[in-house]
Design a protein around this nucleic acid. Structure first.
Lengths: 199, 199
DNA sequence: GTCTATACACCGATAGAC
DNA sequence: GTCTATCGGTGTATAGAC
């Protein structure tokens, strides 16, 4: 995970074990809900007893933290890939950014809950786990700036708009599209408000 | 709670005990977080042992459900009181509705988490607990209709906008006003989009 | 009816043997 | 590293005192 220059045979085994544990943790979280994740079940899926997990992660929170980092890293990776295909027209570009965000947030409840926290009682990501999330927000700021949106409040308004659509979608129509289908209208409403020119 | 025509001495004692338990539950939820609510601590605060709570509530979820109903009933009560002072100007009225909602949602994290669910793993409000929440949404629809906003999608867009501001506020600036202060801009943005006339 | 005492199955976490 | 055993916590069920 960290930028190791040399990785011995033992290190590879260690990271492999960590990866396997995290994969199992994601599966449990998706089946039983994020809060329904238990060390005993994760351990069972990787052929261990629960206490053995503590040789690889300091605590259950450390597992959540690693998952948090994985989720935002994956977001970053996919966003990078999608960046090449961004339309030139400002509104179309903004629409595509919003569409990507909503699609990612609506695809996996456990992941969404973890990335946007709150549902795990005392969990707060460490600085290391937070890093990719911070980078993603920076990337969004840069994109908006390129579209002419530079004010902090304008950026905050955009994130609130996206967060609201996602939240209402999960809360009141999970699996449906009652709120996600409002995306185009929401983006146009926002674009009008911050002065992004109409096509 | 229910509409009893006669309330015997025992009934009064029963509802008094229930009320006392719920008050203690709110206190615990505010101190330790909504998920940090434990029956043992609630019981201790009302001078009971944990199992004794089961004489008054069928389960911990039943306590959550009663709290859910209380929160939305309180929202309804305050909204009713505020209704008399609503401005005549459409945008001002919309702004006041939004302001009330945000103020209520931002005032108490445990209450907000409970009213908008999700953080309590398997909890889903019963029909009875849900009733005041449904009434509140109906009231909002009526208000918006009076302002000329009748489309379901327009209503959904408004609820998403409010939900987003509240969520971002709690998630990224709890206790502050980084997102709540965007309220006027958000309302104007929305009013422009749905065609509520400018003053 | 209301409460206590007890018990059960589960949780995260730790200690120590191997 | 992984195990077993265990600790203190949880929600919850039930038997029985009053």
């Amino acid at each position: 995970m960290l930028g190791e220059t040399t990785s011995s045979w033992q290190d590879k085994r260690r990271t492999a074990a960590r990866t396997e544990i995290l994969t199992a943790a994601w599966a449990v979280a998706r089946e039983h809900g994020l809060a329904g994740l238990t060390l005993r079940e994760v351990a069972a899926r990787v052929g261990m007893r629960a206490p053995s997990l503590y040789s690889h992660f300091a605590s259950k929170h450390a597992i959540y933290d690693a998952m948090f980092g994985q989720a935002w890293t994956e977001y970053e990776r996919l966003a990078d890939a999608a960046e090449a295909g961004l339309p030139a027209a400002p509104r179309a570009a903004l629409r595509e950014i919003a569409r990507f965000h909503l699609a990612f947030a609506v695809a996996d409840l456990a992941r969404h809950q973890l990335m946007n926290v709150r549902t795990v009682p005392d969990f707060a990501p460490t600085e290391e786990g937070l890093a990719p999330a911070v980078r993603v927000l920076g990337r969004l700021r840069a994109h908006l700036a390129r579209l002419g949106v530079t004010g902090d409040e304008d950026v905050d308004l955009f994130t609130a708009l996206l967060a609201g659509l996602v939240d209402q979608q999960w809360a009141n129509d999970p699996g449906g599209d009652r709120w996600t289908r409002l995306l185009d209208r929401a983006v146009d409403m926002y674009a009008d408000a911050v002065g992004i020119p109409r096509p």
